[in-house]
Design a protein around this nucleic acid. Structure first.
Lengths: 339, 339
DNA sequence: CAGCGCGTTTAGATCGATCTAAAAGAGAAG
DNA sequence: CTTCTCTTTTAGATCGATCTAAACGCGCTG
């Protein structure tokens, strides 16, 4: 039982393999009658197109390498879903790589992707990725789109989100509720999105003429945030509001605060980022800045497709808007004695 | 600027391409000195192995198609992470397909995967997948591993979990707390895991000599479960405890109950499945049966690797244990008037 | 009827690796 | 020195498609 090839199809249809090849590629050069004959032969023999063989002569492999830092984080999983949906539709296969935020694993994966002859890469760079990584890809002639994060001092297509609006809305909401002592809880992964979000926080604060009360770095897990609550609320000058780099931290802190008997929204206001589904499940609901990872993923894939069709076009960026979603965890400042 | 091929490497090292080929494949047939010469040439020229060309003659492509019903669901994302981790390690590339639980999309993806010449498939079948789907794959000679769900009346390698222990522990816990009026909240996706879990529930109940109070089917979203709380608690005979098919339903219901002023663990006991991270964040904590999707994924990948190396071996199964995690949402039955 | 243009079809070379089967080289034994 | 292993290397065919450039058939025109 041998594999069915174009030669078999051609023979069965009584044409040459060149003609059969034209049919499978949907060329307009063949007449309607021969096209029909070949298509019938294909159906009858159960022919399967061999992309590997085609790739050897033709330029494109219809394959894209996608690198994600951590699939376990639903945020990235949804990003990936967005990417996959668009690429699937366009007839591209996604080769998946999970970098676990390790540049070494990331390099390894790119090597493998090159062997597979990918047409390009869509990358959310691992924290600590060097400039060299991007430069190499370009040197090798591999189109590359960065998403969510960027490697410093590099220029490629980029799909991210606009941290500005959401953060300003969040800070303004706190400000209007009377909050002035506002702390920021960041993660310990120092990538571009992390820095940008923090910078926007500082910017929004100084626009209101106030200084951040503190910036605290925590490992980005529920557990770490929950454990840190006593320390954060035990500071000499106690914060009246907290903004967190993401909802993982915010939800962990939410629970940690409750453990202490400090009620979010009444005793301290709490705002997260990403507006994950669970934000609406805790009591009181977690106010959060919505970022749409699915759309960011779709944008990344679309930028990639554009790049493929116009390899020399100038690099472009797509930023997805963010917006503040108010919930119970965010309320007016409580007029208890200023410590 | 042309691509570097094995011919270039061979020339540069002063050997034939056949020898160079042996080196890249790590054959023991070459002497240490020529091996070194070729390796130097590879490094110097920046040669990249062309898997596409290799695949044409050799049997294996080192590529696996992985089909997941819904990446947006963290449970599946973690399953995928487990699969990817093992396959990556073994040098396989993962081609990802998101079926959105649609058999049609699934078929489409398999077609594409075949064109890419995958060595096999790891599939969590979309709800409603027909027997034909599995049979076709086997007919085409594509090794296939099913995971988490199985298509009825099919026999392949399978990586799943043991619903028995966790469910029995959960029911027994409720029983010991004095609960007798226990309802089951299922999802509306009727796949094998759904059926098996429900069956185990019935089994565990009848082992204790009690009848399920009701089985209610809900769309598997937080929102749907939250909205259904009033109806579920408004039944003529009010349940004293609820077991949910997964934590999405359980968390939604948790919130819905709180909205009603019904406190989980005091007024009604609530148990979910999967023990997602958020189960520990809500108040009171959601008791849940832990299932380890990452391990299930790893098992699936390992079964696949075994199948590749021994294509004719008899089909085997791996089931990951499940265990009950007790938290505040599960407590003694309250002695209010029996309706 | 030769010559031209147009739409279709095709033979042959080619992509970059691997396979097979045989050759070359190096020692050892007779 | 020949012959015989044993190791190492290689030429040539091959996988299944695509490309190029040429050929073919057919109607139309001068």
């Amino acid at each position: 039982m041998k594999r069915v090839t174009l030669v078999d199809v051609a023979q069965h249809a009584g044409v040459s393999r060149a003609t059969a090849s034209l049919v499978v590629r949907g060329s307009p050069l063949v007449s309607a009658s021969t096209r029909k004959a070949v298509e019938d032969a294909i159906a009858e023999l159960g022919y399967v197109y061999n992309l590997g063989a085609a790739r050897m002569r033709a330029a494109r492999s219809h394959t894209v390498g996608v690198i994600i830092p951590n699939l376990t984080n639903p945020f990235f999983a949804v990003l990936l879903a967005g990417i996959e949906t668009v690429l699937e539709e366009a007839g591209f296969a996604v080769i998946l790589g999970n970098s676990y935020d390790s540049p070494a694993k990331q390099d390894l994966f790119v090597g493998r992707a090159r062997e597979h002859g990918v047409d390009g890469l869509i990358v959310c760079p691992a924290a600590g990725t060097e400039k060299r990584f991007i430069e190499d890809a370009l040197k090798w002639g591999i189109p590359l789109v960065q998403t969510l994060r960027t490697v410093p001092d590099t220029s490629t297509d980029y799909s991210g989100m606009d941290q500005h609006d959401g953060m300003h809305e969040a800070v303004n909401c706190l400000y209007d509720f009377g909050h002035r002592r506002i702390g920021y809880v960041a993660s310990t992964l120092f990538h571009s999105a992390h820095k940008e979000r923090l910078a926007k926080f500082r910017e929004a604060m100084s626009a209101k003429g106030i200084e951040p009360l503190f910036v605290r770095h925590l490992e980005s897990t529920h557990q770490a945030a929950r454990m840190a609550a006593p320390e954060i609320m035990g500071k000499r000058t106690r914060p009246t509001a907290l903004i967190c780099h993401n909802d993982v931290l915010a939800l962990g802190l939410h629970r940690g605060l409750c453990d202490l008997g400090v009620l979010p929204g009444r005793d301290v206001s709490l705002i997260g980022f990403d507006n994950v589904a669970e934000a609406d499940l805790v009591i009181p609901g977690l106010a959060s800045v919505a970022t749409e990872p699915f759309n960011v993923g779709k944008n990344a894939a679309e930028l990639f497709l554009r790049r493929i069709s116009a390899p020399e076009a100038v690099h472009s960026s797509r930023v997805e808007p963010t917006y503040f979603v108010q919930r119970g965890s965010c309320g007016p400042v409580r007029d208890f004695a200023e410590a």
